[in-house]
């Protein structure tokens, strides 16, 4: 994975695959504390202790279509290379929380990359029975969205409707442009 946002999309896809109905994504960039943290929390089926241990093992996956899962171990390795780490909290029937953090300034830290593509990838999922709360904080400034608000405004019109998709893309572009403009100011 070349960008941290690829890992973010992978975490969101994991949450969806676990049957989550509410997924919270938080990204925190704090240059004062030299920190970049990514956290995904879901209310999916969760994992027992044994499964959690194996989830960060590169040769473990719940998938039956293929026998090697590399998402979480790759993220853990990437974080540990950058004076960071990964914690996994999970309980069967309750959900899972993954938090990975990096030294923001670390030379080996991959760029966050295309967060708009990542968010669109998750928002355009064929599953419509879930909600996402997203928040990206950069030194005190915040951009985010809550799909419950979007769906409330949209009624029966799905997020994947071409006109809505276009709106979402522009909304994300605008939100990110403003978030990072404040940093440059």
């Amino acid at each position: 994975m070349r960008e941290l946002s690829h890992h973010v999309l992978d975490l969101l896809e994991n949450a969806l695959a676990a049957g989550a109905t509410l997924v919270t994504l938080r990204i925190e960039e704090d240059t004062q504390r030299d920190l970049l943290a990514i956290e995904v929390q879901d209310d999916g089926r969760g994992m027992d202790a044994d499964m959690q241990k194996r989830a960060v093992d590169p040769f473990f996956t719940t998938r039956t279509t293929r026998h090697v899962g590399l998402g979480l171990p790759l993220l853990k390795a990437a974080a540990e290379r950058c004076e960071g780490g990964l914690v996994l909290d999970s309980a069967v029937g309750k959900g899972t929380r993954v938090r990975a953090w990096f030294a923001w300034e670390h030379i080996d830290r991959a760029p966050l990359g295309d967060m708009i593509g990542t968010l669109l990838g998750a928002l355009l999922t064929s599953r419509s029975d879930w909600e996402m709360v997203f928040e990206h904080r950069v030194d005190g400034d915040t951009f985010g969205l809550d799909t419950r608000e979007l769906r409330e405004a949209l009624g029966d019109v799905p997020l994947s409707h071409p006109a809505v998709r276009q709106w979402l893309e522009e909304y994300l572009q605008q939100g990110y442009a403003e978030l990072y403009a404040k940093q440059r100011a």
Binding site: H6, L9, E13, D114
Partner: peptide, 16 residues
């Protein structure tokens, strides 16, 4: 397709 395998092979970039 947007599983780990898809993402790692550039599925997000293809989608965009």
């Amino acid at each position: 397709g947007m599983g780990t395998c898809g993402i790692a092979s550039g599925a997000r970039e293809t989608m965009r």
